[in-house]
Each structure stands twice: as C-alpha cells, then as structure tokens.
Design a protein around this nucleic acid. Structure first.
Lengths: 195, 195
DNA sequence: GATAAACTAGGACACCCGTACCACTTCCTC
DNA sequence: GAGGAAGTGGTACGGGTGTCCTAGTTTATC
C-alpha cells in the first residue's frame, strides 16, 4: 500500500537491504504498476513510460527487468489471473455461488474489463493463450469444487459457461443486475436438479 | 471481391458514375478495409494510414469521410456485427444449432477474434457499448427463433450464454472441437428436456 | 583492495500515430 | 457560364512509442 515502494534515494542509499532485494522489489513494483494501468486504461495504457512513471522508476528500468513489452504484458496477465482466481475463490467459499452477482456489482469493473481484454487478446499470442487456458480451467475447477462435483463433470463445465457469459456481459454491457441474478439461479437449478 | 474497387484514375476520370456515387463507394471501401484490418491484426491495426492504404486511397480520405478514428471503429464494429449476425442466422437456418461447432471450425478465426476484441473494448466506450448490446440481443433472438421460443424466454437466454462462452473459448483458447460439440449437445438437451 | 558483475539513470534514435492544412479538380445550382 | 460546394491528394506538425546506448554507481567474488 506504500505508494513509493522503492523510490530511489539519491542522497541516502539504503543500508539494511541488499541491492538484490531492492531489485526484486523494483521488479514487483513495475509489475504491479503494469497491472494497475492495464485495469485502469486497458490494453493501450500499458506503455514502458507509463509503467515506469507509475512505479516511480526511470524509463530504462522497464527494459532492464523485462525483455520486451510483450513479456511485461504476459506477466501482468498471469499475475492478474492468479489474483482474480484467489479472490473469487475466497468470495465463493464464504458467500456461495448465488452471491456472485453481488460480488460482480461491488468488484472493480475496470479491473474485470482489463482481465477480459487481455483474455481476448490471448487469442493472438500463444504465450498468453496458455495463461488464458489456465484461467478457464481454474474457474471450472472452482465451480466444480463449490458444487461438490469432480472437476471433469460436464455439469460444472456447463454452469461455468453460463457464469462466464453473465460475468462478461455484466462487465461490458452493464445490464441490470437483477436479470443476472435470476438467470444465475435458473442456471444453478438447471444443472443440479435433473438427475 | 474487386481488389481495387475505387482506385483513382488520374488519366481517365470516371464518366458514367457521378462523383457522389464514387464518394459513397470510397467510403464503403474505407469501411471494408477497416473491418478487414480489424479482423486480421486486431484493434491496434486499424490506423488511418493502414486503412487508407488498404483501400488504395490517400491518407486524408479517412479523415474526410470519418470525423475521427473512434467513429471509424464504431462503424466498423456495427458493420461487423450486422454481417456476422446475418451470416450466423443463415447458417443456423440451414444446419441447425447442433451444427454450430462445424461453423466455428470453418469460419475465419481472426475475424471472430476481432469481433470479440471490439466487444470487450465496448466496455470502455458508451457508443460501442450500445452496439454490443444489440449484438447480444440479436444472438439471443436468433437462438430463441431457432428453438421456437419467445425472445424473452429465459431458456433461450441461458442457452445463449453457454453458446457464447463456448464460442469465445473456441476462438481464444482453441480447445478441441469435440469437447465443444458434446458440451453443446448437453446444453441443448438440458434447456429443452426438463419441463 | 582489485575486478567482474549487476544495477541505475538519463538521453537518443527511428518510427508510427492522429489530425490539420492547403492547393487542386470536379460537380451541382443558380 | 459563374460561383460555391463537395471531393481529392500530397504533405507537414506535434506528440507518443518501443528499444537501444552509454556512462556512472553499487554490490559480490576473488
């Protein structure tokens, strides 16, 4: 939460931290800045200069710690996916699947937009594509766990497809939340009832 | 299909066409070029220069016929949506819903990617957002018609959510087509069987 | 303490971008 | 036919981009 996690101290160089630790912190700061920019302004907002400026680091640090912008984006995507999976898992375990619409309503919309933006972009980049698959698999696994089904159960897979679209539509089109809620309960009933 | 629909003829100006018709053709050529570029290289590929070059027209023509790049993108999106809806409707009426995976397999993947890319981007632009809503509504309507349901039937809405995700995943993640097929048949059975 | 390695910081390069400008030609209206 | 509007095409401007280069500083290893 420190806004200046590693501002260079020209006058008083750090003493009780090794430079390696400092470098690690800087790299993490750059990554966090990239994620933030991605969620705020979308894909095009993640530029070397913007990232460096956000992290309070010189421009060249971005090319030093990341070989290219693509690599930076890939790592940012992976980071975002992991964070989002963990957050959603926590939320579901305490509130259940039916509470998801409320989660959608309270969550940061631009953040979700950035995630989806990168997801679609993954269709044009093999590296990102692999992360996108991990994302889908993680979500399906999450749904299966919540329903007490094996991860390969097609019912979990199907319910996730509905969940996914409802989520995407909520983020992109900003449809009324009540419709999403009723549709979701419909879907859950459908997948569990007809044995 | 003519690669040079309106190449300027410096030496022999057109005679049997008025300039207004020529201008209309030029505008359409620019729009088509924008759609092509969008589907090929994604969002960032649609630049004034690239569009003009693709349409074999001078750079300034893009700013003459479109007030800004945003307007050009919006019109390209609308055009793409309309075309895609019509194409899919034709396909479904002749092959049925269960044949959709085959349609996905044969359709131009990059084109679909461009469509989704723009769809997600619509979350950041109110004008595009409206087009995105029209797209979803059109798809739901299409599904409802095929199933013989009223357009407001939640079952059509739900089936579309599954369809949508399967489609998106196929385009982005390139999952094996067989899984998509079996999941789709599952979903169709689920939505129609359990009254 | 010397030497190599890692890191920092600023600037520069070449490129592409959206858009504006300006002569020029062609068409439509009176 | 005259004059204004519409359309055409080449170019310039200011700005932002990814990446590279280089000189300086700090740290780790011998």
């Amino acid at each position: 939460m420190n806004p200046h996690p590693d501002t260079p101290q020209h006058d008083t160089p750090p003493q009780h931290t090794t430079t390696q630790a400092r470098a690690r912190r800087r790299r993490a700061a750059l990554l966090a800045a990239a994620v933030d920019l991605l969620t705020e302004g979308g894909f095009a907002a993640v530029t070397h200069r913007a990232v460096a400026h956000r992290a309070h680091l010189p421009l060249a640090s971005t090319t030093y710690y990341f070989t290219s912008r693509d690599q930076l984006l890939a790592e940012a995507f992976a980071h975002l996916v992991e964070t989002e999976l963990r957050t959603t898992r926590d939320w579901i375990t305490t509130h259940g699947l039916t509470g998801l619409p409320h989660h959608l309503a309270t969550a940061d919309r631009t953040r979700q937009l950035g995630l989806w933006e990168l997801y679609v972009h993954a269709g044009r980049d093999p590296v990102l594509q692999q992360i996108a698959r991990r994302w889908t698999d993680g979500c399906v696994h999450l749904v299966a766990d919540t329903l007490g089904l094996p991860p390969t159960d097609p019912r979990a897979r199907l319910l996730y497809t509905t969940l996914s679209t409802l989520w995407l539509e909520h983020v992109v089109e900003q449809r009324p939340l009540d419709d999403t809620r009723t549709l979701l309960t419909h879907a859950i009933e459908n997948t569990l009832k007809p044995p």
